[in-house]
């Protein structure tokens, strides 16, 4: 069985104040799939990611990565396979240089310094910011910070990439850069976002979350062309699939002009 497979079985999770954030969620993500998890604010997307990464543990249900069940004991091994990029890159960049931040993960797994240096170089080159390796993270622009945050995860060579709102608060050029980057990765990808156009470009499968449950699970084209479903889940069709705002032609849209 592939160790790139992620399975959630009947997950339930409530916060200590009693708020039920996740209610009976089940899904399986296979090797090489790119899955977009979408939903309104407070639907439970980020909580779901935290459960997948073992930052939170479910009240009931289980998460299986490859053949391994996620438990406190198996956490280090599973975290080596899953790489998560946080919504706010400032949460992820805490060392004094970009190079040290990218090296942080490999060093924690006690790789020798030569291997660490080679991984750092490779990860930074992959996201196109090798020239920024000696800069302090807080001095980078929003797009550069996002690229650095992605590099911190790539340097650990994960099998599965998990990204929470990877294009939030980015200008159009940086957003495009991150999207191209995501498309270039051959990893299994799990991406949460409100930026449906970005998810449409980068993911083939969508999971729609509504009030902590899976409201729909299917191919991107099928889900994003269902305005009733999207509306009932507090979402809108992506701009690239909407009618042309100037002539109203259904065959033309923002993307085709």
């Amino acid at each position: 069985m592939s160790h790139h497979r992620v399975e959630a079985r009947n997950l339930h999770f409530s916060y200590p104040d009693g708020q039920a954030a996740i209610q009976d969620i089940s899904f399986t993500i296979l090797h090489g799939e790119a899955v977009g998890i979408i939903g309104a604010n407070g639907a439970g997307k980020s909580t779901l990611l935290m459960l997948l990464m073992g930052i939170l543990f479910p009240d009931s249900g289980e998460i299986i990565v490859g053949d391994t069940r996620l438990t406190p004991k198996t956490l280090p091994m599973i975290r080596e396979r899953l790489g998560m990029v946080f919504q706010d890159p400032d949460d992820q960049l805490f060392m004094t240089t970009v190079r040290d931040d990218v090296a942080f993960g490999p060093r924690n797994y006690h790789l020798d310094e030569q291997e660490v240096a080679s991984r750092v170089r490779e990860a930074l080159a992959q996201v196109g910011i090798l020239h920024l390796r000696d800069r302090a993270p807080f001095k980078l622009s929003g797009g550069e910070k996002r690229a650095a945050a992605i590099a911190t995860v790539l340097s650990m060579k994960p099998d599965i990439l998990i990204m929470d709102e990877p294009t939030s608060s980015l200008d159009p050029k940086s957003r495009r850069m991150v999207m191209e980057l995501l498309k270039s990765f051959e990893h299994t990808k799990i991406i949460t976002s409100h930026d449906l156009d970005m998810v449409l470009e980068t993911c083939q499968r969508f999971l729609v979350i509504k009030e902590g449950s899976v409201a729909a699970d299917g191919p991107a084209g099928e889900i994003l062309k269902n305005p009733q479903l999207l509306h009932s889940c507090g979402l809108e069709m992506p701009l690239s699939l909407q009618k042309c705002p100037i002539c109203g032609d259904q065959t033309k849209n923002f993307k085709s002009g």
Binding site: I55, F86, D91, Q92, F94, D100, N108, E113, V116, T152
Partner: peptide
Amino acid sequence: DRAQRVYAAMCLRGFKGDYNTGDD
């Protein structure tokens, strides 16, 4: 909240309490 998020980001990258600077 912020400190918890940063700590979570550190743990996800294998942090177990040792700050490894790689300078040996």
